[in-house]
Design a protein around this nucleic acid. Structure first.
Lengths: 133, 133
DNA sequence: AGAGGTGTCACATGGATAATGTGACAGATG
DNA sequence: CATCTGTCACATTATCCATGTGACACCTCT
């Protein structure tokens, strides 16, 4: 069984969905450092995608330092990678600007957006603390 | 001169950048309902992009009900369009989840993210009130 | 009526990316 | 040695992005 459990949606690239699901699993503590990550072929089989697609997703996660390779063994979850220079700035500027524009577009109020973020944050952070504790 | 003033960045589709810049201008009050929107050819010329690309962006904004067509005349800014069913839900779930994951990824703290959003919100909303008043 | 602006449409090309298909190789484990 | 692992090198198909080119109907102004 795959530690990655999610539904593939049409319209968004499979590889992006896999990468995001993995990041979410790392951050929420579903996959802890040292634990094995599904192999290329296992991931492809479980999600019913092509091994090459699975391989590319795993390659991305390795480049992003979420995973480490044990040659001939497989990949394991690494310690949470340090953010690269510029990552924080890009998030705080472009992504925040984007979500604010979209929120105003759908006639959301500021408190509603803030509350939604707090909720989501708690939902993701709490399981991690439980897993670490 | 184009009421849309922004720098095209490499790496992101031009059409997406144009659409976002337009949305931001509408929401911030830089472009008010009734005002003319740049023509396909003027927009293409000013931004130094292909007329077809400009046309596609404008088509999207029309479908999204940001713009209205005056046949033979041009397009004008419409009243802020009502959000479609599902827009709010998608933002509150997927987009919020995405930005929260990315924020934790770059080791941001919750208050920092919330503050950045409040700042950005004020930056976009305030000019609009001034323009309307 | 004519010129020149507007949106619109129908083709086309080249390039990049996504996803799949197929086959092969080296390293580690049992 | 069999079987798992990651890795690599090709390939095809489809989609999207951006551009190129030409044309048409509508409206306004002179």
């Amino acid at each position: 069984m795959t530690p990655l459990r999610f539904q593939l949606k049409a319209g968004e690239p499979i590889i992006d969905q896999v990468i995001f699901a993995a990041k979410k699993a790392f951050i929420s503590g579903e996959l802890l450092p040292g634990e094995p990550f599904p192999s290329v072929r296992a991931l492809a089989s479980d999600l019913k995608i092509h091994p090459n697609t699975a391989h590319k997703a795993i390659q991305y996660l390795i480049q992003d330092r979420w995973l480490e390779v044990r040659q001939g063994i497989g990949t394991v979850v690494a310690r949470r990678p340090e953010p690269r220079r510029g990552d924080r700035k890009r998030l705080l500027q472009q992504e925040v600007e984007h979500i604010v524009v979209e929120a105003i577009r759908v006639e959301l109020k500021l408190p509603e957006l803030l509350e939604a973020i707090e909720e989501q944050w708690a939902k993701i952070e709490k399981p991690q603390e439980a897993a670490l504790g």
